[in-house]
């Protein structure tokens, strides 16, 4: 099977998964206790006329599957209805916040990769040395410190005391945004670094003890070749998996971090929307998160396919 065929098969599987998930997401409305019309309007707006209007608009009298069909068709066109709190269309509420979170996630991910992978490799190669012990200590401390505590600590040191970075807000324009996002990204990366560092250390340790490394050295291959073509290539597969998971679950991390740093992103939007039972927004966010996770997984799978010949040949035989 060619790469394109493999990719196509995976995309079809993802579309099917999303369709199934959308059904569950839509069912949230029916599962919420009380009259769906009142849920959609919010109790304070539920005048009899408004209730009648919303019933009419969403077809709440129709059978469940018809309702779902109408919702799904609208959702495909980017229409998730109106936010209950702000009465704005859900899509515009989300897009206004999307980029903050995307930048935060990418920024944190880059910090994570740049710190965790080299440190993990070093720790694995110099097993038991001071650098390995340092890496283990960092991992342990970071793992058992709550995210909000790290956030407050960063704000106190770098914003209040040193005044290097702003402690809250989104900023305007590219550089200002980067400047504003530095502390939040650091806080988010602190959550992610231990996971990736441990994975990298374990993966490299597993590979450097293999016979094929000894065999490669015995044939006089250069150190750079052994590192790139042997250690990193074979160690990259498990690291890739956890890196993908970290990226996919950035949104979950963003929920806390955005609240600590008063950022107007998807994480803080999710918290406030759940708090006010703003169901259309919650539905859209849930679906968006699912798509994010699935697409990240797809990218990882395709990378795996390119990196691991066993997978390529297994695909070819199937």
């Amino acid at each position: 099977m060619t790469f394109a065929a493999y990719a196509l098969r995976r995309v079809v599987a993802i579309v099917a998964t999303i369709a199934l998930l959308s059904l569950l997401v839509f069912a949230l409305l029916a599962l919420t206790p009380g009259d769906p019309a009142i849920t959609l309007l919010g109790p304070q707006n539920a005048t009899p006329e408004a209730v009648a209007a919303i019933r009419e608009r969403y077809g709440l009298g129709d059978p469940f599957l018809v309702q779902y069909g109408n919702w799904a068709v609208a959702a495909l066109q980017g229409d998730f209805g109106d936010s209950i709190r702000s009465s704005e269309p859900v899509m515009s509420v989300i897009t206004s916040r999307l980029w903050t979170t995307v930048w935060l996630a990418l920024y944190a991910f880059i910090i994570t990769v740049v710190v965790a992978i080299p440190l993990g490799i070093l720790a694995a190669v110099r097993r038991g040395s001071w650098i390995d012990r340092l890496a283990s200590s960092i991992t342990l401390i970071a793992l058992c410190t709550p995210a909000f505590a790290i956030g407050f600590l960063l704000i106190y040191v770098f914003s209040v005391q040193l005044d290097w970075f702003p402690g809250f807000g989104n900023g305007d324009g590219f550089f200002d945004t980067i400047w504003h996002l530095t502390l939040p990204a650091l806080a988010l990366a602190t959550l992610q670094i231990p996971i990736l560092l441990r994975q990298t250390r374990a993966a490299v340790m597993d590979v450097v003890d293999r016979d094929y490394i000894v065999f490669a050295r015995s044939r006089g291959l250069s150190r750079s070749r052994i590192w790139l073509r042997y250690v990193l290539r074979n160690g990259s597969l498990p690291v890739l998996t956890s890196a993908g998971l970290i990226l996919a679950f950035s949104l979950a991390g963003a929920v806390l971090i955005e609240n600590v740093f008063a950022l107007q992103g998807l994480g803080s939007l999710l918290v406030s929307s759940v708090g006010t039972l703003d169901l259309p927004v919650v539905q859209a966010l849930a679906l968006l998160t699912a798509i994010l996770v699935l697409v990240t997984n797809l990218v990882i799978d395709l990378l795996y396919y390119a990196l691991d010949p066993r997978l390529r040949r297994a695909g070819a035989a199937a």
Partner: peptide, 24 residues
């Protein structure tokens, strides 16, 4: 060792399934 300066000793190991790089 520098490039082109080959080792004079070769090594062949026991397990043929672990001696070769699985991605090469």
């Amino acid at each position: 060792r520098g490039r082109g300066d080959s080792p004079r000793v070769g090594l062949l190991m026991q397990d043929p399934f672990t001696m070769l790089n699985p991605t090469m």
